[in-house]
């Protein structure tokens, strides 16, 4: 059955697969259903992440696009999250467009591009402050975390109970 959110996602998928190919360094790895999509993100050119490849996982539900998808880096036996001041070692990302600044006019590809440029502009490879504490207590779904977008360099997450 086709629902509002799957119709919008099918349009996005058609664009990604056929009409307008994703920008260089972004590759669709998996989109077998409308629940989970995985992209490969690579930062090309001069950056701290030269030669590294990351998996970016999207999880959707029927609130999309009125609510942001749940987006995180893939962390498993083969893949690691990038070392970045806004990325926790469990793959969770502190980025305002995935939370407070989400807009339904954004898209999956817009998120991929934002995350790619977040990596490209990184000046220092370091973990977010409080990474260990966060990772120990983080919910499975990063959307359940109430991130505080304090400034550009040091996010302070706290779990809303």
């Amino acid at each position: 059955m086709s629902t509002v959110y799957t119709r919008r996602l099918s349009k996005e998928l058609a664009e990604i697969q056929t009409e307008t190919k994703p920008p260089i360094g972004i590759r669709l790895l998996k989109a077998d259903d409308f629940e989970t999509w995985i992209f490969e993100i690579e930062v090309l050119g001069d950056s701290l992440y030269r030669g590294e490849r990351f998996g970016l996982k999207f999880r959707f539900d029927n609130s999309y696009p009125f609510s942001a998808p749940a987006v995180q880096f893939v962390v498993d036996s083969g893949m690691k999250a990038p070392v970045h001041p806004h990325v926790y070692t469990n793959g969770h990302i502190c980025a305002s467009i995935l939370g407070d600044d989400w807009s339904p006019t954004l898209s999956v590809m817009a998120v991929c591009i934002t995350i790619q440029s977040m990596l490209a502009s990184c000046k220092r490879k370091e973990l977010p402050e409080g990474n260990d504490t966060y990772v120990r207590t983080a919910p499975d779904n990063p959307k359940k975390t109430h991130f505080v977008y304090d400034d550009d360099t040091s996010p302070f997450p706290s779990n809303r109970v």
Binding site: V4, P65, P104, T105
Partner: peptide
């Protein structure tokens, strides 16, 4: 429409 990506001449998904 920037929200549903359906042409204005069509209708919203609901």
């Amino acid at each position: 429409c920037g929200i549903c990506r359906v042409p204005f001449e069509g209708c919203c998904p609901t």
